[in-house]
C-alpha cells in the first residue's frame, strides 16, 4: 500500500501543481488576486507582487512537469516538499500579520486563510516526501496494479476536491440538495405557532397608528410584553407643549394573534405616559394624518 501511494504521489502532486501553477502563471485575474495577498506588503508594490505570483506559478508548473517526466528521481520530489514547507511558512506569516488577506494559493478568489489552505500546503509537503521515496515510475505502477491505482487516485482526487473552496459548488451544494430531498427539510414547519414579536412590530409599522405617533416616537422598540391577549410595545418619545419638551413612554397595544397577513387594517391602542408625572398625556399631541384630497380629474 505504501509503495503504491508513494509511486502514485508524483502524478497527484503534478496534477495539483500544474493546475494551480497554470492558473497563477496565465490567469487573467492574477494581478487582482495578488493585490489581496500579503505579498503586496512584502514587496511594497502591487506589480512586483503580481510578478512574484506569476514566477511562483512557473516554478509550480515546471516542478509538476519534472514530477511527471522523471518520477523516480529524488530532486523533483524533494523540491515539491520544499515548496510545501515554503507555502506553510508563507501561510503562517500571512495568517499572523494579515489574517484577512487571501492566500493566493490556487489563484482564485478565496476568503481568508483557513484550515483548508494549511491542509493543502501540508499535503504538498507529504506528497513531495512520498514522491521522493518512490521506487517505480507511476506509469509502470498503474499498469502493474490498475485496480489499486484507480482507488488511490480516486481518493486523492476526492481529497483535493474537498480542499478546494472553488469547487464547493460543484459537489457540496448538489450533495446538500440531495440530502434535503432524501431526508426532508431539516427545519420543521411551525404549526399553530405564537406570533413573533417582530411580526407584531411589522404590523404596527404598517398601521396608521404608527404614522400618527411617529413624530412623538424617538427610540426603536424599548420593551414588549404580553398581557391578557394584548401585546404591549413600549417606545421612548418626547412631546412639546407650552412648558417645554417632556419625555414620554409611547405605548401601543395590539391583538397578540394578528399579523399583516391576517389583519391588513389593525386597530391599535396608542397612549402616551409622561415619564415624570406618570400621567396619561392627552392624545391631541399626536399629529393627525392629513387627509389626502384627490386631484381633480380631467373630464
Amino acid at each position: 500500500m505504501i509503495p503504491l501511494v508513494s509511486n502514485l504521489a508524483p502524478l497527484v502532486c503534478a496534477a495539483l501543481l500544474a493546475t494551480t501553477g497554470a492558473a497563477k502563471l496565465f490567469g487573467r485575474q492574477t494581478a487582482r488576486l495578488a493585490a489581496n495577498t500579503v505579498l503586496v506588503r512584502v514587496f511594497n508594490d502591487g506589480r512586483r507582487a503580481t510578478l512574484a505570483l506569476r514566477v511562483l506559478g512557473g516554478v509550480e508548473l515546471s516542478l509538476g512537469a519534472a514530477l511527471l517526466a522523471s518520477p523516480v528521481a529524488l530532486l523533483p520530489g524533494a523540491g515539491t516538499a520544499l515548496l510545501g514547507v515554503g507555502f506553510t511558512g508563507y501561510l503562517a506569516y500571512a495568517k499572523a500579520t494579515a489574517p484577512e488577506s487571501s492566500c493566493g494559493c490556487s489563484a482564485r478568489a478565496e476568503g481568508p486563510i483557513g484550515a483548508r489552505s494549511f491542509t493543502r500546503a501540508g499535503l504538498v509537503v507529504a506528497g513531495g516526501l512520498a514522491a521522493a521515496g518512490g521506487d517505480a515510475a507511476w506509469w509502470s505502477e498503474v499498469s502493474r496494479r490498475p485496480g489499486g491505482s484507480a482507488l488511490v487516485l480516486a481518493a486523492a482526487a476526492a481529497m483535493l476536491l474537498g480542499l478546494t473552496a472553488d469547487l464547493d459548488r460543484v459537489w457540496l451544494v448538489p450533495l446538500r440538495k440531495a440530502r434535503i430531498r432524501v431526508f426532508g427539510h431539516p427545519l420543521p414547519p411551525a404549526s399553530g405557532e405564537r406570533v413573533p414579536v417582530a411580526a407584531t412590530v411589522q404590523l404596527l409599522e404598517n398601521s396608521l397608528a404608527w404614522q400618527t405617533a411617529m413624530p412623538v416616537v424617538r427610540s426603536a422598540l424599548l420593551d414588549h410584553w404580553d398581557d391578557e391577549g394584548w401585546r404591549v410595545l413600549r417606545y421612548a418619545g418626547s412631546y412639546r407643549d407650552a412648558r417645554g419638551t417632556h419625555p414620554v413612554s409611547v405605548l401601543f397595544a395590539l391583538d397578540v394573534t394578528l399579523t399583516v397577513d391576517t389583519a391588513p387594517n389593525p386597530a391599535v391602542r396608542v397612549s402616551l405616559i409622561d415619564e415624570e408625572t406618570e400621567e396619561v398625556v392627552p392624545s391631541s399631541v399626536l399629529a393627525p394624518v392629513p387627509v389626502r384630497t384627490p386631484l381633480p380629474l380631467a373630464t
Partner: peptide, 19 residues
C-alpha cells in the same frame, strides 16, 4: 394605561423604525 384610556387608531399607512 395602554389598554384602558387609549386612543384607538385603525386603518393602514406606511412607515417604519425597526432594526
Amino acid at each position: 394605561a395602554a389598554v384602558g384610556g387609549a386612543t384607538i387608531v385603525g386603518a393602514s399607512a406606511l412607515g417604519g423604525l425597526d432594526a
